[in-house]
Structure formats: C-alpha cells, structure tokens
Amino acid sequence: MTQALRPGGRLLIESADSRLQPLACPDETGPAQKLANRIRQACWTLQARRTDLGYGRTLTRRLRDADLVDVQAEACFSLAGHAEVRFERTMIERARERLIASGMVTAEELEQHLANVDAGRLDLTAFPVVSAWGRKARC
C-alpha cells in the first residue's frame, strides 16, 4: 500500500487490539460482571490460537518500517451501547461450542451470561481499535 502512495500521500490503517483492554466489563462490581470477564477471557484464549490479538499495537512500527513519516495513532473502544450487546451476543454464539468443549466455560454459565446481556445488566465493551496513519515523505 505504501508503494502506491504519491509523495506527501497519507495512509490510514485500522486494526483491533483486544489485548489493550481485554475485559468485557471494566467496572467489575458483581457476579454478572465477573462472569462476563471470565467468558471474554475464554473467548480471547480461543481466538489467540488463530490470530494475533495484539496486532493493532504494531501498526505504528509497521508504518515507520515502511518509511512513512509523521506516524501517529490512537486507540478507542466503546462502552455500554447497543452495538456492544450485539457484538457480545454474536461472539458468544459463534464460539459457544468451542467454549464448552474447551472446559473453560459451561453451557449453564453461557446461558446465564446471555441472560445478563439481554437483561441490560452489563456495561459491555467492544475490543479496542487502533487507528494509525502516516505520510510518505515528499522526497
């Protein structure tokens, strides 16, 4: 991508980095939040076998290594919204069988967690997204 840039051209890349903020509920105030965080950790453990959960933090280095200048980045994650509820439910449904088979979570715990999610009792987070950008030098 950097080779396609003209001098002075800019490149923006975004990637997730769930290791920057690995909790489902940063405000762990009770059993429902503790269960959510334990389940999220189990999900990340399974996912880490297939992908680099900390890739986002490498973007600035990668952009500098590609000879871009004025490299900067920011990371953000959302908290307590409808999108986070949909993300949580989707992640759990997709990983349900693997989570149970792993022994890290029981089917009953997953059902309780999804009931907590549906009841709106949790301030859930989505994974952090890192946005990194840089510019190709003018000469």
Rank of each mutant, 00 (worst) to 15 (best):
R40H: 14
L110V: 13
R19D: 08
E88T: 15
R96S: 10
T51Q: 12
R50N: 10
P31V: 12
P26A: 12
R138L: 13
V71W: 02
R98V: 10
L53M: 10
V69W: 02
W44Y: 11
Q3R: 15
L114D: 06
V69C: 10
L122C: 07
L11I: 11
A42M: 09
F87S: 02
A107Q: 12
K136S: 04
F127I: 08
L59E: 03
G9Q: 11
Y55T: 04
R50T: 09
M91G: 03
V129M: 12
R19Q: 07
R10C: 13
D52G: 05
A101W: 05
R6E: 12
T45K: 09
L99Q: 07
S78Q: 10
E74F: 13
A66C: 02
E93Y: 04
V69D: 05
R6A: 15
R96H: 14
R49K: 14
R98C: 07
A16Q: 09
E14K: 11
N116R: 01
L114Q: 14
V71S: 01
E28V: 12
M91V: 09
R38C: 00
M104P: 00
L23S: 08
N116M: 02
G9I: 14
A42T: 06
Q72R: 12
E93D: 13
E108C: 08
Q41T: 11
E74K: 10
I100S: 08
E84A: 14
D27N: 14
L68H: 03
R64T: 15
C76D: 10
A16K: 03
Q47G: 02
D27E: 14
V85D: 02
P26K: 11
A137I: 00
R57Y: 01
P128Q: 06
R89F: 00
D118V: 04
K34Q: 15
R64N: 04
E97S: 12
E111H: 13
V85K: 09
K136G: 03
R86Y: 01
V130K: 05
L79P: 00
A115E: 15
K34T: 15
C25W: 05
P31A: 14
A126T: 09
A4Q: 13
R89W: 04
F77V: 01
A95P: 06
P128T: 05
R6Y: 07
V105N: 07
R50P: 00
G8H: 06
R40M: 13
E108A: 15
N37R: 02
R57V: 10
Q33M: 10
M104L: 15
D118F: 06
A137P: 08
P128L: 10
R38H: 14
